[in-house]
Structures are given as structure tokens and as C-alpha cells.
Nucleic acid binder design. Structure first.
Length: 292
DNA sequence: CCGCGGGCCTGAGAGC
DNA sequence: TGCTCTCAGGCCCGCG
């Protein structure tokens, strides 16, 4: 499920459960997910205390107390689940059991009694360990572009990032080397909100003189708004413990265009219909009436 | 160098 | 009920 807002929501949930706790035991149910786990993975995690939980783009960064950082990416289908300690009172028969034990690949047992389980059916996610000092040079992180929620991110920066690109807006926005954290859903949603066609050339966000256009301003603003609202929505899901079975990283938003092919455009007074097209192998959803 | 398409995996849902 | 097909919120790699 995870794009930047989902990963941020997961980060906040894991932060609550994990920071300050020590990893007492690590269960590794396979030797790889997308890539092999790094050498001595269990040994390097066992006994470590989690000092902080950060995020870079769609990557989760678990900073450990020994100078290493656990890097985790959820891929398409990865999720973390936090479970409280079993109350081992006799007759406590409500033993919590995973709905999908087959894809529980990593289980961390913490000294605060909680259990953190990584589940990933498609195994496009991955985990690695790296020196905290050298994180920025990790092969998977070194090429990442701008954080769209950073204060420096604005229309000017956006126009600069897209200058010289020959790609359409949709593809340029998905390129993690330029802006890091957007995925297929929020790119579609941001373009809709900015009323820009996904087919428009990305380079046209700057005037010939190199100044950001009105479109650049609209898009930069839309990206920020869409991400912040999604994080807010995730945050509220996270607080709702009745329906959170501990599962993090999976919640439903109301999308304006994503997966709404054939349905009416939600913009007031627009008579358009949401269309779908394929761009660099992914589905793009947009309203041809109001996105120009 | 850049952009695109194929590939990696498994499961869900549609259509027959 | 079951089979087959398409599609899926990720990224890497090789090709032109």
C-alpha cells in the first residue's frame, strides 16, 4: 500500500511501540524477501535498543544504539503489525493469531512485551543494515531526490527539478530521483487537485526564463496538501484502536480520481468522467475535462 | 544520459 | 465451484 503518507503513518505507529525498547529476540522466517537479508542479520539486531525511528521518502530507518540503522522498505505489499504482550493469565484463550502467517517474514520481540511483525506477501520489500553515519551513501538512498514535505520544497524547486526533463508530468513525479515519496495514487491525486494533465511536459513548469509558472505553483501546493491530508487521515486511523488490529500501513482514503475510472468527476460543476490511461507501465487516472 | 518496458512475486476479483 | 485472465499503492535493470 505504501506511499509517503502510509510510510509516515507506519513510522509514527512503530515509534510509539519501539523507541526506547530493546530487541530481545528476532525470528527470521526466510533468508530473503526481495533481496537476501544482510549477513548476521539476527545477531546484529538482537540486544539492540531502538534509539529513534525516522523516514526518508518511502524508507523506514530504525536507528539502533550501536551505530547501525535498520533500513526497511515495504515494497507493494509490506506491512508492520504491533501486538501487545500476551496476558498469560490462565484461561486467556484469546490468543492472537496472524491472519496471514505464511507471509510473516520477520518477528521482533521487544523487552516491553510488544511484538513487531513484518508481513509481505509479494516480497517486493527489503531490509538492510548500515552504519548510521554512512546512511546517505547507502545504494538505495543515495539517489533519492527531494522530500516533498521539506520546507524548501516549493514551486521554484519543483520547476528546477523538472527542467530539462523530456518526460510527461506523471512520469516525472513518479521519479524518486527528483521527488522522493510520491507513488501512483498521490501523483494522480495531486495532478487532479492542481488541474493539470498528466500528459503535460514536465519541463513546462518553468518559463523560458526559468521562473516557475502558475502551474508549478499549483502543483507544488497540491502535492503538499494531498500528502498532508493523507497523513492526517492515517493518523486518525492509527488512533482508532478498535479497528486497528495492530496492523499498520493499510487504511482507506477517499480518492478523487485514483481507481475511479468511468465515474463522474468530483469537481463541482464539472460534467467530466474519470479516464484511465497507461503511462510508463502504470495506470493514470484523470479528468480530461478539468485537467489541462 | 534519459525514458520506457519487462521482470520480480503473490493474491484478489472479474468473467466465463 | 473452479479455471483463467488481468491487475495491483514498489523498484531494478537492460535496452534503444
Amino acid at each position: 500500500m505504501p506511499e509517503l503518507p502510509e510510510v509516515e503513518t507506519v513510522r509514527r505507529g512503530l515509534e510509539l511501540a519501539m523507541v526506547g525498547a530493546r530487541i530481545e529476540k528476532v525470528e527470521l522466517r526466510r533468508k530473503d524477501i526481495r533481496f537476501p537479508f544482510p549477513p548476521r542479520f539476527r545477531e546484529r539486531l538482537t540486544g539492540r535498543r531502538i534509539a529513534a525511528l525516522a523516514r526518508r521518502a518511502k524508507f523506514l530507518l530504525f536507528r539502533l544504539d550501536d551505530g547501525e540503522t535498520l533500513i526497511a522498505h515495504l515494497g507493494m505489499s509490506g506491512s508492520f503489525r504491533v501486538e501487545a504482550a500476551e496476558t498469560s493469565s490462565p484461561g486467556a484463550f484469546h490468543h492472537k493469531r496472524s491472519k496471514d502467517p505464511k507471509h510473516d517474514h520477520v518477528v521482533l520481540h521487544l523487552d516491553n512485551g510488544k511484538t513487531v511483525t513484518y508481513n509481505d506477501p509479494r516480497r517486493f520489500g527489503f531490509m538492510d543494515l548500515a552504519a548510521s553515519e554512512a546512511l546517505e551513501t547507502h545504494p538505495r538512498l543515495i539517489e533519492l531526490g527531494e522530500e516533498p514535505l521539506a520546507v524548501e520544497f516549493d514551486a521554484r524547486r519543483l520547476a528546477e527539478l523538472f527542467a530539462g526533463s523530456r518526460a510527461p508530468l506523471k512520469s516525472a513525479l513518479l521519479d524518486q530521483k527528483r521527488i522522493a515519496g510520491l507513488g501512483n495514487i498521490y501523483v494522480c491525486e495531486a495532478l487532479f487537485r492542481a488541474r493539470l494533465s498528466p500528459l503535460r511536459p514536465a519541463a513546462a513548469l518553468a518559463s523560458p526564463a526559468g521562473k516557475p509558472t502558475r502551474a508549478a505553483h499549483a502543483l507544488a501546493k497540491a502535492i503538499r496538501a494531498v500528502l498532508e491530508e493523507a497523513i492526517e487521515a492515517g493518523g486518525s486511523t492509527l488512533r482508532d484502536h478498535r479497528r486497528a488490529d495492530g496492523g499498520l500501513g493499510y487504511f482507506q482514503h477517499g480518492f478523487s480520481v485514483y481507481d475511479r475510472e468511468g465515474l463522474p468527476c468530483l469537481r463541482p460543476r464539472c460534467r467530466g468522467t474519470i479516464h484511465r490511461l497507461a503511462q510508463s507501465g502504470r495506470s493514470t487516472f484523470y479528468c480530461p475535462e478539468c485537467q489541462k
